[in-house]
Simulated assay, not measured.
Amino acid sequence: MKRLLSISLLISILTLQSCAGQKINLGKVLDGVLSQTQGGGALTNDDVVMGLKEALKVGINKGADSASKTNGFYLNPKIKIPFPPEVQRVETALRKIGLGNEVDKFVLSLNRGAEEAAKEAKPIFINAILSMSFSDAWGILRGDKNAATMFLKRTTSDALVQAFMPVVEKALQKTQATRYYTDLATTYNALPFTQKVNPDLKGYATQKAIDGLFILVEQEEARIRENPLARTTEILKRVFGAS
């Protein structure tokens, strides 16, 4: 009963602080929970790990759903994939000779490819968080508002690139981004006095698609930490409410 009362009180405080627009310090509030739930009443190791994994799953699901919608990448300035910057001169030169529409078609198809690939992102990302340890989860709970996302990004990015690349490659072929870019590169390489280009479009699109998904996951993590209404499951309410 004492544990339930202390957690309920802290949830009320968090709710009031959130509504008042105040920044919530999860570490300090967590210390309060631990001090008020003596005698084994504090959150268990399993609670903390499960709560963090659930938070990441919620963020991944919502992020992937948002990204996979039509224009999820293309009309979101935070994650829209531009013409590959290492060959920006290709875009500039092609626009100068009147091929701006073709460049625009390629950029659109590139983002459509990322949107298509995002549909397959959920199981890849979710499988990547299953190895999170208690010490990792506890540090994340007491960390910055994007600590969980940064942990996931730091520990899984290489594996995600390998797993996600064939998904992106298939999506780029489906949206014809590969064909559009091949045509553009061929046209550019035929121009006089130009340095030939052959960038790794698949690698570029894969990394940008993953970066965009991480941005969306990070936004959702911040919402879960700061807004009690964003905690949509019981374990999220217990762990982040008590924190």
Rank of each mutant, 00 (worst) to 15 (best):
E115N: 00
V103M: 02
M165N: 13
A118S: 01
G98N: 02
Q22H: 12
S8C: 11
L160M: 14
L191N: 00
K145P: 03
Y204N: 06
V49Q: 06
T149V: 14
K153S: 15
I60A: 04
L43F: 01
P123T: 03
Q173W: 05
L184V: 03
T194A: 03
G139H: 05
T187R: 08
R231K: 13
F83Y: 14
I124V: 15
A190V: 00
S109D: 14
L236Q: 09
R238P: 03
T182C: 07
N25W: 03
N76Y: 04
L30P: 00
G63D: 01
A222T: 15
Y181P: 05
T149F: 09
T92F: 10
R3Y: 11
G59A: 12
G98H: 02
T37S: 09
T187N: 05
A177C: 10
A121K: 00
G27K: 11
R179C: 04
P228A: 02
D104G: 09
K153T: 12
G212E: 01
D211W: 04
D158G: 07
A147V: 03
F240L: 07
F106H: 04
I140Y: 10
L213Y: 02
L52S: 03
K28W: 07
L5Y: 09
T194W: 01
K145C: 04
M50K: 13
A163W: 07
R3V: 12
M132D: 10
M1G: 13
Y181E: 09
K237A: 12
N146D: 15
Y188I: 02
F83Q: 01
V197E: 07
L34R: 14
R142C: 11
K2E: 14
F134R: 09
K57D: 13
E218L: 11
I126E: 14
F214S: 05
R3Q: 12
L152G: 04
Q38A: 15
Q173K: 14
T186W: 03
I140V: 15
T233V: 09
K57A: 13
T206A: 07
V90K: 00
L9A: 15
A93G: 04
V217K: 04
V33D: 11
D136P: 00
T92L: 12
Q162P: 04
A148Y: 09
K69V: 00
S133R: 10
G40C: 03
K196M: 09
E120H: 08
L56P: 06
I215S: 13
G41W: 00
L152D: 01
T206V: 11
I79V: 15
E234S: 15
P166G: 05
M1N: 13
G21M: 07
R179L: 13
A163T: 08
E116D: 07
Q17L: 15
D47G: 08
Q207H: 09
P77G: 10
F151E: 11
A64Q: 01
I79L: 03
T155S: 13
A128W: 06
G63N: 02
